[in-house]
């Protein structure tokens, strides 16, 4: 069950996208996410879908991995789509029963919305699949570095350090959970069968050891960092220095072209 958890998991295939500068990737991801919501008609959106398909191919990551992530949000996707069907009253009514009216406009809107959510997830998965957690945080730290001119340098560093640690510990926690689950299974806990209440009760023997070991590893980590003279990051330099390369400029250029075409489509159609 826990092995299927891939949200935020780096998938090293060393593709063109993998080699892009993390700062550029972060900004472009943000840009694309905004662009998705700027595309107001079906032509513009189709264009974006085309770009995203290209992106999937460029990352060299099996389509299955993206589908896996989409499965996680399927319930939310269905929920928002259905709700949107009922909450739009403009347009021609195509279906009516009791107090519920479904209009053609509502159908279009729901499809748009669900497509947008799917695109959002794919683009953000592409970011996390192609960028290791460490590069993401180095990228973020670098992007937020102007804040040091207004006296927030330490705060930015603390935030990114917290993120690095949190990301770093996700796999550890997953592994720990799996271990504790197995240990309790070996003691006769049954997670698969039983009533809902029994299954909820079965979580307690996992949760308590997990909490205790997390607190313990937090202390250990803090001590390990202090004994290596960590003091909050004033003037700390990074092991890897980020450098913008030719391919990064190309990616930005590509994005600008995308934007222009999408806005053009928005106006023309």
């Amino acid at each position: 069950m826990l092995n299927d958890f891939t949200l935020g998991q780096y998938f090293p295939t060393n593709s063109l996208i993998h080699r892009l500068d993390p700062r550029i990737k972060l900004l472009l991801t943000l840009g694309f996410l905004i662009l998705i919501f700027c595309a107001t008609n079906i032509y513009a959106l189709t264009l974006i879908i085309f770009f995203v398909v290209c992106l999937i191919f460029l990352t060299k990551i099996p389509l299955k991995m993206y589908v896996k992530n989409l499965k996680f949000i399927l319930p939310i996707l269905i929920f928002t789509t259905v709700i949107n069907l009922f909450y739009t009253n403009n347009g021609n009514i195509i279906l009516e029963f009791w107090k519920i009216k479904i209009t053609d406009y509502a159908v279009v809107r729901s499809i748009f919305l669900s497509l947008r959510i799917v695109l959002l997830i794919i683009i953000s998965s592409a970011l996390t699949y192609t960028t290791s957690p460490n590069s993401i945080t180095t990228g973020l730290e670098s992007l937020f570095s102007p804040f040091k001119y207004i006296g927030l340098g330490r705060a930015v560093h603390t935030m990114t350090m917290m993120m690095t640690i949190a990301l770093r510990f996700i796999p550890t926690l997953v592994e720990e959970t799996q271990k504790i689950m197995n240990a309790q299974k070996a003691r006769g806990v049954n997670f698969e069968n039983g009533s809902l209440i029994q299954r909820i009760k079965a979580i307690i023997p996992i949760l308590i050891p997990l909490l205790i070991s997390s607190v313990k590893s937090a202390y250990d980590l803090a001590e390990a960092m202090e004994s290596r003279c960590y003091n909050g990051g004033e003037n700390k330099t990074n092991l890897k220095v980020l450098k913008i390369q030719k391919s990064d400029y190309l990616a930005v250029l590509f994005f600008i072209i995308c934007c222009l075409i999408v806005f053009l489509f928005n106006i023309v159609f």
Partner: peptide
């Protein structure tokens, strides 16, 4: 009995 079984106590 797992490695470091003391982590399963709760």
């Amino acid at each position: 009995v797992f490695q470091y079984p003391e982590y399963q106590l709760f």
